[in-house]
């Protein structure tokens, strides 16, 4: 599948925003702290920025509002509805923290729950597609939720070391969710590669009763929408190396930096060392998740490619 930059940016940034919103909503931060107020603004900006980015790949973005109508059947529609619903309690929480130094428990729990539901809907857009066997695994939504929580908790640690909360609490959460995310992701990838193909050129053409089917001539010499959108092959051969780089950048590096940040903050209180370590952890984590999301698309094979010999 073609890894569209707009979709990668959307799913990673909004995932980070929803993860952060979940932790904010659960009341893990001191509502009066400046860093917490910045955290609320950051979560809202990440979610809104992701949503705007997701409309960039539309053919007719001016009609995007129509996408809220078919929540009965469409996960994409459900995602849009849940994203907007999440804004309500989250904005109320942000208002209470920024202007009244208070944390609202009910609105917070609602914002946290709706954030997770939204991420689940995003994942199910992909997870519900039978045509892409790699994605239709039951673990797909689990990986999305864990990456959302771990990137949110990593940003949360950055806020915590600047006085918003107890640094070790957020660092422990971030380390645990990061480790869990990559363990599940590795399992997901290995499982997906081990699956026997659901659809083959033989079932796609119904000619399997004669023998082995191979593409002889494609419909046109040049690429078309289908081969560009669903026949992406560039750099697939480097997929294993890229996945290793993703684990290193998004797993090992941030875990070490998060521990450093928590220790530094514990030993010296909020300071430059802790801030820098947590800041670099956020950057490394995002870079790793970005590569992971790129591979999520680039490695996925679509059933239609059985007609195109790819």
């Amino acid at each position: 599948m073609h890894p569209a930059l707009s979709i990668i940016v959307f799913t990673t940034l909004s995932g980070m925003g929803y993860g952060l919103a979940t932790l904010l909503g659960l009341g893990l931060f001191e509502p009066a702290a400046l860093a917490t107020k910045i955290g609320y603004l950051l979560a809202l900006a990440l979610i809104a920025g992701g949503l705007v980015s997701s409309t960039l790949h539309l053919g007719n973005p001016q009609r995007a509002w129509r996408a809220l109508s078919q929540w009965k059947t469409s996960w994409l529609s459900r995602e849009g509805v849940m994203a907007i619903l999440t804004f309500l309690p989250l904005t109320v929480c942000a208002y209470a923290s920024i202007f009244h130094d208070r944390h609202l428990v009910l609105a917070g729990v609602l914002a946290a729950g709706l954030s997770l539901v939204t991420v689940y809907c995003t994942a199910m857009i992909y997870g519900s597609l039978r045509t892409v066997q790699l994605w239709s695994q039951p673990l797909t939504p689990v990986t999305y939720l864990l990456f959302s929580l771990s990137s949110g908790a990593t940003v949360g640690t950055l806020l915590a070391v600047t006085g918003a909360s107890r640094p070790w609490l957020l660092a422990v959460l971030a380390v645990l969710s990061t480790v869990a995310a990559w363990m599940v992701k590795r399992r997901w990838r290995a499982d997906g590669k081990a699956l026997p193909p659901l659809t083959t050129p033989e079932t796609a053409t119904g000619l399997g009763f004669i023998g082995r089917v191979r593409l002889f001539e494609r419909p046109h010499i040049n690429d078309n929408y289908l081969t560009r959108e669903m026949g992406f092959q560039v750099a697939r051969k480097h997929a294993d190396k890229l996945f290793g780089i993703a684990i290193l950048l998004g797993g090992f590096v941030p875990v070490v930096l998060l521990v450093v940040a928590a220790l530094a903050a514990n030993a010296m209180g909020p300071g430059l060392t802790a801030f820098l370590a947590a800041f670099l952890a956020v950057l490394a984590h995002y870079a790793g998740v970005f590569v992971e999301r790129w591979l999520f698309f680039a490695e996925a094979r679509h059933a239609v490619m059985n007609y195109y010999g790819r």
């Binding site: 539309l58 007719n60 995007a64 039978r130």
Partner: peptide, 12 residues
């Protein structure tokens, strides 16, 4: 149609 392309992904 907003041109999101999801239906093309869903069609095998």
């Amino acid at each position: 149609c907003i041109g999101c392309g999801l239906c093309a992904w869903a069609c095998p």
